[in-house]
Nucleic acid binder design. Sequence first.
DNA 1: TCTTGACATAGAGTTTACTCTACATTGTAT
DNA 2: ATACAATGTAGAGTAAACTCTATGTCAAGA
Lengths: 126, 126
Amino acid sequence: MEYSIGDFSKLTGLGIHTLRYYEQEGLIAPERNSGNRRCYSDKDLTWIEFIKRLKDTGMPIKEIKHYAELRAAGDPTLSDRMEMLVQHRKALNEQIARLQDHKIKLDEKIDFYRNEIKRTQNNVSS
Amino acid sequence: MEYSIGDFSKLTGLGIHTLRYYEQEGLIAPERNSGNRRCYSDKDLTWIEFIKRLKDTGMPIKEIKHYAELRAAGDPTLSDRMEMLVQHRKALNEQIARLQDHKIKLDEKIDFYRNEIKRTQNNVSS
DNA sequence: TCTTGACATAGAGTTTACTCTACATTGTAT
DNA sequence: ATACAATGTAGAGTAAACTCTATGTCAAGA
């Protein structure tokens, strides 16, 4: 299946401008048809979904671009790419751990507020 | 205990410029001494540590500023603040869930790479 | 044929969160 | 008293990631 940039935008939820920007930044390189229009493929779709994951886990665009370059270079870069992903997984694990710690503190804070609110209500009614 | 901006910077890890910026944005309002120098207190320290958590969990500065304003208004805003935190906790839980999903996919991808690398090495040696 | 809508490029503008510069003032050690 | 390091304000500059504008092209329907 092939998609125009408009269709691909709806499919990915990524805004036409953003897709062109990603292409400019070297993240993705869709084919062009006779009239120079972009033709996104299903492979592009899989790839952009992965890009979205990398972004959502905090990888900056420059780094994704680097990964994309390795990817374009094919099999000889397999272990380089894996190395990148292993590094990124480490960062992701740390991020999750940090967030879980924040969550605990936030739960405590909310409990504290619940008590404070009860306390102030009692003070008002007494 | 009271701290100069320099000491407070070291204490919080937040750069002098950043501390002044936060003040400008209405996140924190340290006392001033006779010579107009900022005097950060231990309460400020507790508060800034909480700000750091909010930031680290993705709350934008404008929203933190709003929270700070409610906080400055005292007890009458307790339930508003709790409401904000409950909302934020919801977002945080979603964020953690998303990241955990990403982590699973990343693990799979890394496994895939491990196999691919093995495969290509076999091909080379055969 | 004419019009309209999707697409093309190049480049400007926006937002967020800092980060830095210039220059004036103050506190402290000699 | 003097030097100098830390601090003050105001405002400019930066980086990342979009987002939009201007202008031009092209294919398909009325």
